[in-house]
Design a protein around this nucleic acid. Structure first.
Lengths: 244, 244
DNA sequence: TTTTCAAACTTGTTTAAACAAGTCTATATT
DNA sequence: AATATAGACTTGTTTAAACAAGTTTGAAAA
Protein backbone atom coordinates (compact mmCIF):
# COMPACT_ATOMS: atom_id res chain seq x y z
CA UNK A 1 0.00 0.00 0.00
CA UNK A 2 1.13 3.57 -0.63
CA UNK A 3 2.96 4.96 2.32
CA UNK A 4 2.41 8.62 1.52
CA UNK A 5 -0.25 10.86 0.13
CA UNK A 6 1.60 11.98 -2.97
CA UNK A 7 2.36 8.39 -3.89
CA UNK A 8 -1.27 7.35 -3.80
CA UNK A 9 -2.30 10.40 -5.82
CA UNK A 10 0.46 9.60 -8.30
CA UNK A 11 -0.67 6.02 -8.54
CA UNK A 12 -4.33 6.95 -8.91
CA UNK A 13 -3.68 9.48 -11.67
CA UNK A 14 -1.34 7.08 -13.42
CA UNK A 15 -3.98 4.40 -13.55
CA UNK A 16 -6.60 6.82 -14.78
CA UNK A 17 -4.30 7.93 -17.56
CA UNK A 18 -3.48 4.35 -18.53
CA UNK A 19 -7.16 3.48 -18.57
CA UNK A 20 -7.83 6.34 -20.93
CA UNK A 21 -9.86 8.50 -18.55
CA UNK A 22 -8.25 11.56 -20.09
CA UNK A 23 -7.92 11.52 -23.88
CA UNK A 24 -4.50 11.93 -25.46
CA UNK A 25 -3.54 15.59 -25.79
CA UNK A 26 -6.37 16.71 -23.50
CA UNK A 27 -5.91 18.57 -20.26
CA UNK A 28 -6.13 16.90 -16.89
CA UNK A 29 -8.03 18.63 -14.06
CA UNK A 30 -6.15 21.70 -12.85
CA UNK A 31 -4.05 21.61 -9.72
CA UNK A 32 -6.82 23.46 -7.89
CA UNK A 33 -9.37 20.83 -8.87
CA UNK A 34 -7.03 18.01 -7.88
CA UNK A 35 -6.57 19.66 -4.49
CA UNK A 36 -10.35 19.40 -4.01
CA UNK A 37 -10.48 15.83 -5.31
CA UNK A 38 -7.70 14.49 -3.10
CA UNK A 39 -8.17 16.87 -0.19
CA UNK A 40 -4.56 17.87 0.12
CA UNK A 41 -2.24 20.80 -0.37
CA UNK A 42 -1.01 22.14 -3.67
CA UNK A 43 2.53 20.94 -3.03
CA UNK A 44 1.35 17.39 -2.58
CA UNK A 45 -0.56 17.45 -5.86
CA UNK A 46 2.41 19.01 -7.61
CA UNK A 47 4.70 16.31 -6.30
CA UNK A 48 2.48 13.60 -7.74
CA UNK A 49 2.32 15.46 -11.05
CA UNK A 50 6.07 15.91 -11.26
CA UNK A 51 6.51 12.14 -11.02
CA UNK A 52 4.13 11.70 -13.93
CA UNK A 53 6.14 14.25 -15.88
CA UNK A 54 9.26 12.19 -15.21
CA UNK A 55 7.44 9.13 -16.51
CA UNK A 56 6.57 10.93 -19.73
CA UNK A 57 2.86 10.58 -18.98
CA UNK A 58 1.98 14.26 -18.82
CA UNK A 59 3.38 17.63 -19.69
CA UNK A 60 2.70 20.84 -17.83
CA UNK A 61 1.90 23.93 -19.86
CA UNK A 62 2.36 27.11 -17.83
CA UNK A 63 -0.75 29.21 -17.93
CA UNK A 64 -2.74 26.48 -19.60
CA UNK A 65 -2.83 23.27 -17.65
CA UNK A 66 -1.50 19.73 -17.61
CA UNK A 67 -1.66 17.76 -20.82
CA UNK A 68 -1.90 14.02 -21.17
CA UNK A 69 0.82 12.80 -23.56
CA UNK A 70 0.62 9.13 -22.65
CA UNK A 71 0.39 6.66 -25.47
CA UNK A 72 0.09 2.98 -24.76
CA UNK A 73 3.27 1.27 -25.82
CA UNK A 74 3.32 -1.66 -28.18
CA UNK A 75 4.10 -4.63 -25.96
CA UNK A 76 5.11 -6.74 -28.93
CA UNK A 77 8.45 -7.51 -27.42
CA UNK A 78 10.15 -7.80 -24.14
CA UNK A 79 10.48 -4.44 -22.49
CA UNK A 80 12.96 -3.32 -19.90
CA UNK A 81 12.42 0.11 -18.50
CA UNK A 82 12.74 0.83 -14.84
CA UNK A 83 14.65 -1.18 -12.30
CA UNK A 84 12.96 -4.51 -12.29
CA UNK A 85 14.05 -8.07 -12.17
CA UNK A 86 13.56 -10.63 -14.87
CA UNK A 87 10.76 -12.17 -12.86
CA UNK A 88 8.98 -8.83 -12.56
CA UNK A 89 9.28 -8.23 -16.28
CA UNK A 90 7.94 -11.66 -17.03
CA UNK A 91 4.96 -11.16 -14.78
CA UNK A 92 4.24 -7.71 -16.12
CA UNK A 93 4.21 -9.11 -19.62
CA UNK A 94 2.21 -12.12 -18.48
CA UNK A 95 4.72 -14.56 -19.80
CA UNK A 96 6.17 -17.57 -18.11
CA UNK A 97 9.81 -16.97 -17.29
CA UNK A 98 12.32 -19.42 -15.97
CA UNK A 99 15.95 -19.27 -14.99
CA UNK A 100 18.84 -21.68 -15.35
CA UNK A 101 21.99 -21.20 -13.32
CA UNK A 102 25.03 -21.86 -15.48
CA UNK A 103 27.65 -20.95 -12.92
CA UNK A 104 27.74 -20.03 -9.27
CA UNK A 105 30.99 -19.22 -7.51
CA UNK A 106 32.71 -17.01 -5.01
CA UNK A 107 35.70 -14.93 -5.98
CA UNK A 108 37.85 -12.02 -4.95
CA UNK A 109 38.04 -8.94 -7.15
CA UNK A 110 41.47 -8.63 -8.73
CA UNK A 111 42.61 -5.46 -10.44
CA UNK A 112 40.99 -6.41 -13.71
CA UNK A 113 37.60 -7.21 -12.23
CA UNK A 114 37.78 -4.17 -9.98
CA UNK A 115 38.36 -1.76 -12.83
CA UNK A 116 35.65 -3.32 -14.93
CA UNK A 117 32.97 -3.57 -12.28
CA UNK A 118 33.72 -0.63 -10.03
CA UNK A 119 34.11 -2.83 -6.96
CA UNK A 120 37.19 -2.12 -4.84
CA UNK A 121 40.13 -4.42 -5.42
CA UNK A 122 40.07 -7.30 -2.98
CA UNK A 123 36.30 -7.23 -2.51
CA UNK A 124 34.71 -10.60 -1.82
CA UNK A 125 32.12 -11.34 -4.48
CA UNK A 126 29.58 -13.86 -5.65
CA UNK A 127 29.64 -14.50 -9.36
CA UNK A 128 26.47 -15.84 -10.91
CA UNK A 129 25.95 -16.70 -14.54
CA UNK A 130 22.35 -17.30 -15.48
CA UNK A 131 20.25 -17.97 -18.51
CA UNK A 132 16.75 -16.50 -18.60
CA UNK A 133 14.00 -18.08 -20.61
CA UNK A 134 10.73 -16.54 -21.66
CA UNK A 135 8.17 -19.02 -22.89
CA UNK A 136 10.96 -21.62 -23.19
CA UNK A 137 13.04 -19.36 -25.42
CA UNK A 138 16.47 -18.36 -24.06
CA UNK A 139 16.59 -14.58 -24.22
CA UNK A 140 19.17 -13.26 -21.81
CA UNK A 141 22.50 -14.30 -20.34
CA UNK A 142 23.25 -12.49 -17.13
CA UNK A 143 26.63 -12.17 -15.51
CA UNK A 144 26.07 -10.92 -11.97
CA UNK A 145 28.64 -9.88 -9.43
CA UNK A 146 27.29 -9.36 -5.92
CA UNK A 147 29.17 -7.85 -3.01
CA UNK A 148 29.29 -10.66 -0.47
CA UNK A 149 29.17 -8.36 2.54
CA UNK A 150 25.98 -6.77 1.27
CA UNK A 151 24.32 -9.97 0.06
CA UNK A 152 25.23 -12.58 2.66
CA UNK A 153 24.05 -16.14 2.32
CA UNK A 154 23.43 -16.17 -1.40
CA UNK A 155 23.24 -19.71 -2.72
CA UNK A 156 22.84 -21.46 -6.02
CA UNK A 157 19.30 -22.42 -4.97
CA UNK A 158 18.32 -18.82 -4.41
CA UNK A 159 19.81 -17.92 -7.76
CA UNK A 160 17.56 -20.50 -9.39
CA UNK A 161 14.61 -18.34 -8.41
CA UNK A 162 14.64 -14.60 -8.01
CA UNK A 163 17.67 -13.05 -6.38
CA UNK A 164 15.87 -9.71 -6.12
CA UNK A 165 13.09 -11.42 -4.26
CA UNK A 166 15.67 -12.71 -1.78
CA UNK A 167 17.28 -9.29 -1.46
CA UNK A 168 14.05 -7.46 -0.81
CA UNK A 169 12.01 -9.94 1.16
CA UNK A 170 14.63 -11.88 3.11
CA UNK A 171 17.47 -9.40 3.50
CA UNK A 172 15.08 -6.44 3.48
CA UNK A 173 17.42 -4.58 1.21
CA UNK A 174 16.03 -1.69 -0.78
CA UNK A 175 17.29 -1.08 -4.27
CA UNK A 176 17.53 2.60 -4.91
CA UNK A 177 19.62 3.48 -7.87
CA UNK A 178 20.96 1.83 -10.96
CA UNK A 179 23.42 3.28 -13.46
CA UNK A 180 23.06 1.55 -16.78
CA UNK A 181 24.81 1.56 -20.10
CA UNK A 182 23.50 0.03 -23.29
CA UNK A 183 25.97 -1.07 -25.96
CA UNK A 184 26.08 -3.48 -28.87
CA UNK A 185 28.70 -6.20 -28.81
CA UNK A 186 29.90 -9.07 -30.91
CA UNK A 187 28.52 -12.47 -30.07
CA UNK A 188 30.77 -14.76 -28.09
CA UNK A 189 30.80 -18.52 -28.28
CA UNK A 190 28.95 -18.70 -24.98
CA UNK A 191 26.23 -16.40 -26.31
CA UNK A 192 25.94 -18.43 -29.47
CA UNK A 193 25.65 -21.67 -27.57
CA UNK A 194 23.14 -20.70 -24.93
CA UNK A 195 21.03 -18.13 -26.75
CA UNK A 196 20.77 -20.49 -29.69
CA UNK A 197 21.79 -17.80 -32.13
CA UNK A 198 23.03 -18.29 -35.62
CA UNK A 199 25.99 -16.07 -36.54
CA UNK A 200 24.75 -15.89 -40.10
CA UNK A 201 21.63 -14.33 -38.72
CA UNK A 202 22.71 -11.97 -35.97
CA UNK A 203 26.36 -11.62 -35.04
CA UNK A 204 25.76 -8.98 -32.32
CA UNK A 205 23.68 -8.62 -29.24
CA UNK A 206 22.52 -5.89 -26.92
CA UNK A 207 24.45 -5.54 -23.70
CA UNK A 208 23.24 -3.71 -20.62
CA UNK A 209 25.79 -3.19 -17.91
CA UNK A 210 24.50 -1.86 -14.65
CA UNK A 211 25.82 -0.80 -11.30
CA UNK A 212 23.18 -0.97 -8.62
CA UNK A 213 23.14 0.75 -5.26
CA UNK A 214 21.16 -0.15 -2.17
CA UNK A 215 19.62 2.22 0.33
CA UNK A 216 22.90 2.43 2.25
CA UNK A 217 24.48 3.98 -0.81
CA UNK A 218 26.62 0.90 -1.34
CA UNK A 219 27.12 -0.46 -4.82
CA UNK A 220 26.27 -4.10 -4.19
CA UNK A 221 25.78 -5.40 -7.72
CA UNK A 222 27.45 -5.22 -11.08
CA UNK A 223 25.69 -6.95 -13.90
CA UNK A 224 26.31 -7.53 -17.53
CA UNK A 225 23.13 -8.53 -19.26
CA UNK A 226 23.42 -9.91 -22.77
CA UNK A 227 20.18 -9.88 -24.76
CA UNK A 228 19.05 -11.60 -27.92
CA UNK A 229 18.80 -8.67 -30.31
CA UNK A 230 15.47 -9.67 -31.83
CA UNK A 231 13.78 -9.56 -28.44
CA UNK A 232 15.55 -6.57 -27.05
CA UNK A 233 13.89 -3.26 -26.37
CA UNK A 234 14.99 -0.56 -23.97
CA UNK A 235 12.70 2.32 -23.18
CA UNK A 236 13.43 5.66 -21.73
CA UNK A 237 11.88 9.04 -21.18
CA UNK A 238 14.15 12.05 -21.11
CA UNK A 239 13.03 15.35 -19.69
CA UNK A 240 15.07 18.33 -20.69
CA UNK A 241 15.82 20.35 -17.61
CA UNK A 242 16.79 23.94 -17.79
CA UNK A 243 20.52 24.17 -17.75
CA UNK A 244 23.55 26.45 -17.66
CA UNK B 1 22.38 32.05 -16.73
CA UNK B 2 20.22 30.18 -14.23
CA UNK B 3 16.76 31.61 -13.99
CA UNK B 4 15.99 30.26 -10.58
CA UNK B 5 17.67 29.70 -7.27
CA UNK B 6 17.35 25.94 -7.17
CA UNK B 7 18.85 25.65 -10.64
CA UNK B 8 21.95 27.59 -9.70
CA UNK B 9 22.38 25.58 -6.52
CA UNK B 10 21.94 22.39 -8.55
CA UNK B 11 24.48 23.56 -11.07
CA UNK B 12 26.97 24.63 -8.42
CA UNK B 13 26.76 21.36 -6.51
CA UNK B 14 26.96 19.36 -9.71
CA UNK B 15 30.19 21.09 -10.70
CA UNK B 16 31.66 20.60 -7.26
CA UNK B 17 30.87 16.90 -7.40
CA UNK B 18 32.34 16.56 -10.89
CA UNK B 19 35.48 18.36 -9.79
CA UNK B 20 35.90 15.96 -6.91
CA UNK B 21 35.26 18.39 -4.09
CA UNK B 22 33.47 15.61 -2.24
CA UNK B 23 35.15 12.20 -2.33
CA UNK B 24 33.23 9.22 -3.67
CA UNK B 25 31.06 7.65 -0.99
CA UNK B 26 31.51 10.61 1.35
CA UNK B 27 28.70 12.77 2.65
CA UNK B 28 27.92 16.18 1.26
CA UNK B 29 27.13 19.02 3.65
CA UNK B 30 23.77 18.52 5.33
CA UNK B 31 20.67 20.33 4.14
CA UNK B 32 20.99 22.70 7.07
CA UNK B 33 24.55 23.59 6.11
CA UNK B 34 23.54 24.08 2.48
CA UNK B 35 20.78 26.42 3.59
CA UNK B 36 23.45 28.56 5.28
CA UNK B 37 25.78 28.35 2.28
CA UNK B 38 23.21 29.34 -0.31
CA UNK B 39 21.04 31.52 1.92
CA UNK B 40 17.76 29.94 0.96
CA UNK B 41 15.00 27.78 2.32
CA UNK B 42 15.13 24.08 2.93
CA UNK B 43 12.72 23.33 0.12
CA UNK B 44 14.94 25.08 -2.37
CA UNK B 45 17.98 23.08 -1.29
CA UNK B 46 15.98 19.88 -1.42
CA UNK B 47 14.82 20.65 -4.91
CA UNK B 48 18.39 21.03 -6.11
CA UNK B 49 19.34 17.81 -4.36
CA UNK B 50 16.46 15.84 -5.87
CA UNK B 51 17.70 16.77 -9.33
CA UNK B 52 21.12 15.42 -8.46
CA UNK B 53 19.50 12.22 -7.23
CA UNK B 54 17.75 11.90 -10.59
CA UNK B 55 21.13 12.32 -12.28
CA UNK B 56 22.59 9.51 -10.22
CA UNK B 57 25.11 11.87 -8.67
CA UNK B 58 24.04 11.52 -5.06
CA UNK B 59 21.97 9.36 -2.84
CA UNK B 60 20.10 10.50 0.24
CA UNK B 61 20.36 8.36 3.35
CA UNK B 62 17.57 9.16 5.83
CA UNK B 63 19.01 9.94 9.22
CA UNK B 64 22.55 10.02 7.89
CA UNK B 65 23.02 12.53 5.11
CA UNK B 66 23.61 12.83 1.40
CA UNK B 67 26.21 10.57 -0.16
CA UNK B 68 28.22 11.28 -3.28
CA UNK B 69 27.95 8.29 -5.65
CA UNK B 70 29.27 10.05 -8.72
CA UNK B 71 31.97 8.29 -10.69
CA UNK B 72 33.47 9.90 -13.75
CA UNK B 73 32.40 7.95 -16.78
CA UNK B 74 34.88 6.57 -19.26
CA UNK B 75 34.52 8.83 -22.29
CA UNK B 76 36.14 6.28 -24.55
CA UNK B 77 33.24 6.36 -26.94
CA UNK B 78 30.49 8.56 -28.11
CA UNK B 79 27.91 9.00 -25.39
CA UNK B 80 24.26 9.87 -25.69
CA UNK B 81 22.48 10.48 -22.47
CA UNK B 82 20.09 13.33 -22.13
CA UNK B 83 18.27 15.15 -24.88
CA UNK B 84 21.01 16.69 -26.89
CA UNK B 85 21.73 17.20 -30.52
CA UNK B 86 24.60 15.69 -32.44
CA UNK B 87 26.35 19.04 -32.37
CA UNK B 88 26.01 19.29 -28.61
CA UNK B 89 27.38 15.80 -28.15
CA UNK B 90 30.29 16.55 -30.41
CA UNK B 91 31.15 19.69 -28.56
CA UNK B 92 30.83 18.01 -25.19
CA UNK B 93 33.24 15.33 -26.31
CA UNK B 94 35.52 17.91 -27.91
CA UNK B 95 35.37 16.27 -31.27
CA UNK B 96 34.80 17.83 -34.63
CA UNK B 97 31.42 16.80 -35.97
CA UNK B 98 29.98 17.40 -39.39
CA UNK B 99 26.73 16.61 -41.09
CA UNK B 100 25.82 15.60 -44.61
CA UNK B 101 22.25 15.83 -45.84
CA UNK B 102 21.38 12.77 -47.90
CA UNK B 103 17.76 13.61 -48.49
CA UNK B 104 15.42 16.51 -47.82
CA UNK B 105 11.77 16.40 -48.80
CA UNK B 106 8.26 17.27 -47.81
CA UNK B 107 5.61 14.60 -47.50
CA UNK B 108 2.22 13.85 -46.07
CA UNK B 109 1.79 11.11 -43.49
CA UNK B 110 -0.09 8.16 -44.92
CA UNK B 111 -1.47 5.42 -42.72
CA UNK B 112 1.80 3.52 -42.65
CA UNK B 113 3.91 6.52 -41.65
CA UNK B 114 1.29 7.64 -39.17
CA UNK B 115 1.22 4.34 -37.32
CA UNK B 116 4.99 4.10 -37.25
CA UNK B 117 5.74 7.66 -36.18
CA UNK B 118 2.73 8.57 -34.08
CA UNK B 119 1.88 11.60 -36.22
CA UNK B 120 -1.78 11.86 -37.23
CA UNK B 121 -2.63 10.61 -40.70
CA UNK B 122 -2.53 13.44 -43.18
CA UNK B 123 -0.02 15.51 -41.23
CA UNK B 124 2.33 17.61 -43.35
CA UNK B 125 5.90 16.63 -42.61
CA UNK B 126 9.49 17.34 -43.49
CA UNK B 127 11.61 14.27 -43.99
CA UNK B 128 15.33 14.66 -43.52
CA UNK B 129 17.93 11.94 -43.92
CA UNK B 130 21.34 12.87 -42.62
CA UNK B 131 24.71 11.33 -42.06
CA UNK B 132 26.69 12.46 -39.02
CA UNK B 133 30.46 12.32 -38.97
CA UNK B 134 32.71 12.49 -35.97
CA UNK B 135 36.34 13.14 -36.80
CA UNK B 136 35.59 12.27 -40.42
CA UNK B 137 34.15 8.90 -39.49
CA UNK B 138 30.49 8.30 -40.39
CA UNK B 139 28.77 7.21 -37.19
CA UNK B 140 25.06 7.83 -37.38
CA UNK B 141 22.34 7.89 -39.99
CA UNK B 142 19.35 9.89 -38.88
CA UNK B 143 15.88 9.72 -40.35
CA UNK B 144 13.98 12.74 -39.05
CA UNK B 145 10.32 13.54 -39.50
CA UNK B 146 9.31 17.05 -38.44
CA UNK B 147 5.80 18.37 -38.16
CA UNK B 148 5.68 21.19 -40.69
CA UNK B 149 3.21 23.30 -38.73
CA UNK B 150 5.52 23.24 -35.68
CA UNK B 151 8.79 23.68 -37.59
CA UNK B 152 7.96 26.17 -40.36
CA UNK B 153 10.61 27.25 -42.79
CA UNK B 154 12.94 24.30 -42.45
CA UNK B 155 15.33 24.09 -45.39
CA UNK B 156 18.09 21.84 -46.63
CA UNK B 157 20.59 24.54 -45.69
CA UNK B 158 19.42 24.61 -42.09
CA UNK B 159 19.61 20.81 -42.00
CA UNK B 160 23.26 21.02 -43.07
CA UNK B 161 23.99 22.66 -39.75
CA UNK B 162 22.08 22.09 -36.55
CA UNK B 163 18.32 21.79 -36.77
CA UNK B 164 18.04 22.00 -33.02
CA UNK B 165 19.94 25.26 -33.11
CA UNK B 166 17.33 26.56 -35.57
CA UNK B 167 14.46 25.31 -33.43
CA UNK B 168 15.71 26.85 -30.24
CA UNK B 169 17.34 30.06 -31.38
CA UNK B 170 15.28 31.06 -34.41
CA UNK B 171 11.87 29.56 -33.72
CA UNK B 172 12.36 29.88 -29.96
CA UNK B 173 10.93 26.45 -29.47
CA UNK B 174 11.67 24.64 -26.25
CA UNK B 175 12.25 20.93 -26.29
CA UNK B 176 10.73 19.39 -23.23
CA UNK B 177 10.27 15.71 -23.47
CA UNK B 178 11.58 12.83 -25.50
CA UNK B 179 10.36 9.25 -25.43
CA UNK B 180 13.06 6.92 -26.69
CA UNK B 181 13.42 3.28 -27.49
CA UNK B 182 16.68 1.46 -28.09
CA UNK B 183 16.69 -1.68 -30.20
CA UNK B 184 19.16 -3.65 -32.28
CA UNK B 185 18.41 -4.13 -35.96
CA UNK B 186 19.87 -5.79 -38.99
CA UNK B 187 21.96 -3.64 -41.24
CA UNK B 188 20.30 -2.36 -44.40
CA UNK B 189 22.06 -1.64 -47.67
CA UNK B 190 21.83 2.07 -46.94
CA UNK B 191 23.50 1.57 -43.56
CA UNK B 192 26.22 -0.55 -45.10
CA UNK B 193 26.92 2.00 -47.78
CA UNK B 194 27.01 5.17 -45.75
CA UNK B 195 28.32 3.92 -42.44
CA UNK B 196 31.08 2.06 -44.26
CA UNK B 197 30.34 -1.13 -42.42
CA UNK B 198 31.41 -4.59 -43.38
CA UNK B 199 28.71 -7.23 -42.93
CA UNK B 200 31.37 -9.80 -42.08
CA UNK B 201 32.26 -7.57 -39.19
CA UNK B 202 29.01 -6.25 -37.78
CA UNK B 203 25.68 -7.15 -39.33
CA UNK B 204 23.58 -5.19 -36.80
CA UNK B 205 23.42 -1.68 -35.49
CA UNK B 206 21.89 0.20 -32.60
CA UNK B 207 18.68 2.03 -33.35
CA UNK B 208 17.20 4.80 -31.23
CA UNK B 209 13.71 5.87 -32.12
CA UNK B 210 12.44 8.95 -30.39
CA UNK B 211 9.30 11.02 -30.22
CA UNK B 212 9.98 14.54 -29.09
CA UNK B 213 7.55 17.05 -27.65
CA UNK B 214 7.86 20.81 -27.49
CA UNK B 215 6.68 23.10 -24.72
CA UNK B 216 3.20 23.26 -26.23
CA UNK B 217 2.89 19.52 -25.63
CA UNK B 218 2.94 18.86 -29.36
CA UNK B 219 4.93 15.95 -30.70
CA UNK B 220 6.85 17.74 -33.44
CA UNK B 221 9.57 15.21 -34.23
CA UNK B 222 9.94 11.53 -34.85
CA UNK B 223 13.45 10.29 -35.40
CA UNK B 224 15.08 7.01 -36.13
CA UNK B 225 18.75 7.17 -35.34
CA UNK B 226 20.92 4.34 -36.62
CA UNK B 227 24.29 4.04 -34.92
CA UNK B 228 27.49 2.22 -35.78
CA UNK B 229 27.56 -0.42 -33.06
CA UNK B 230 31.24 -0.01 -32.21
CA UNK B 231 30.74 3.65 -31.35
CA UNK B 232 27.41 3.36 -29.68
CA UNK B 233 26.80 3.89 -25.99
CA UNK B 234 23.59 4.83 -24.28
CA UNK B 235 23.62 5.84 -20.65
CA UNK B 236 20.87 5.99 -18.16
CA UNK B 237 20.22 6.32 -14.49
CA UNK B 238 17.17 4.66 -13.02
CA UNK B 239 15.83 5.59 -9.62
CA UNK B 240 13.49 3.12 -8.07
CA UNK B 241 10.50 4.98 -6.74
CA UNK B 242 8.25 3.56 -4.11
CA UNK B 243 5.37 1.80 -5.75
CA UNK B 244 2.21 -0.25 -5.31
C1' DT C 1 33.19 -1.53 31.63
C1' DT C 2 28.95 -2.15 29.49
C1' DT C 3 24.31 -0.83 28.73
C1' DT C 4 20.53 2.38 28.41
C1' DC C 5 18.58 6.31 26.81
C1' DA C 6 17.64 10.95 25.89
C1' DA C 7 19.10 14.71 23.10
C1' DA C 8 20.78 16.35 18.89
C1' DC C 9 21.41 15.48 14.70
C1' DT C 10 19.93 13.63 9.79
C1' DT C 11 16.28 13.29 5.71
C1' DG C 12 10.99 12.63 4.49
C1' DT C 13 6.19 14.39 4.25
C1' DT C 14 2.66 17.80 4.43
C1' DT C 15 0.49 22.16 4.92
C1' DA C 16 0.03 27.19 4.10
C1' DA C 17 0.94 31.38 1.99
C1' DA C 18 2.66 34.74 -1.19
C1' DC C 19 4.15 36.37 -5.52
C1' DA C 20 5.50 35.84 -10.55
C1' DA C 21 4.27 34.97 -15.13
C1' DG C 22 1.73 32.96 -18.95
C1' DT C 23 -3.21 32.22 -21.04
C1' DC C 24 -7.89 32.91 -21.71
C1' DT C 25 -12.30 35.34 -21.72
C1' DA C 26 -15.59 38.60 -21.48
C1' DT C 27 -16.37 43.30 -20.95
C1' DA C 28 -15.51 47.95 -22.24
C1' DT C 29 -13.59 51.06 -25.47
C1' DT C 30 -12.43 52.65 -29.89
C1' DA D 1 -16.66 45.21 -36.01
C1' DA D 2 -12.19 45.31 -34.26
C1' DT D 3 -9.22 46.35 -30.38
C1' DA D 4 -7.71 46.96 -25.77
C1' DT D 5 -7.82 45.63 -21.24
C1' DA D 6 -8.94 44.02 -16.75
C1' DG D 7 -9.81 40.01 -14.22
C1' DA D 8 -9.91 35.22 -13.53
C1' DC D 9 -7.81 31.53 -14.52
C1' DT D 10 -3.40 28.42 -15.22
C1' DT D 11 1.52 26.62 -13.62
C1' DG D 12 6.36 28.06 -11.49
C1' DT D 13 9.25 29.58 -7.56
C1' DT D 14 10.25 30.48 -2.83
C1' DT D 15 9.69 30.81 2.02
C1' DA D 16 8.17 29.10 6.63
C1' DA D 17 6.73 25.85 9.81
C1' DA D 18 5.55 21.55 11.90
C1' DC D 19 5.90 16.75 12.62
C1' DA D 20 7.69 11.96 11.56
C1' DA D 21 11.29 8.73 11.56
C1' DG D 22 16.02 7.01 11.19
C1' DT D 23 21.04 7.42 12.99
C1' DT D 24 24.60 9.25 16.05
C1' DT D 25 26.53 10.59 20.29
C1' DG D 26 27.53 11.29 24.75
C1' DA D 27 26.03 11.30 29.40
C1' DA D 28 23.82 8.75 32.99
C1' DA D 29 22.81 4.36 35.02
C1' DA D 30 23.67 -0.40 35.70
Amino acid sequence: MPRSKYESIYKDLKEKIEEGEYPYQELLPSEHQLIQTYDCSRNTVRRALSNLVADGYIQTLPGKGVRNIYQAVEQASYTLGSIESFRESSLRNRRSGSTRVLQFMELTADRKIASRTGFPEGAELYYVQRLHYLDLKPLIINHNYFLKSAVPGLTREIAEGSIYNYLENTLHMTIVNSKRTVTVEKITQIDEKYLELNVDDYNCLAVITSQTYNSDGVMFEYTQSRHRPDYFRFQDNAVRRKSS
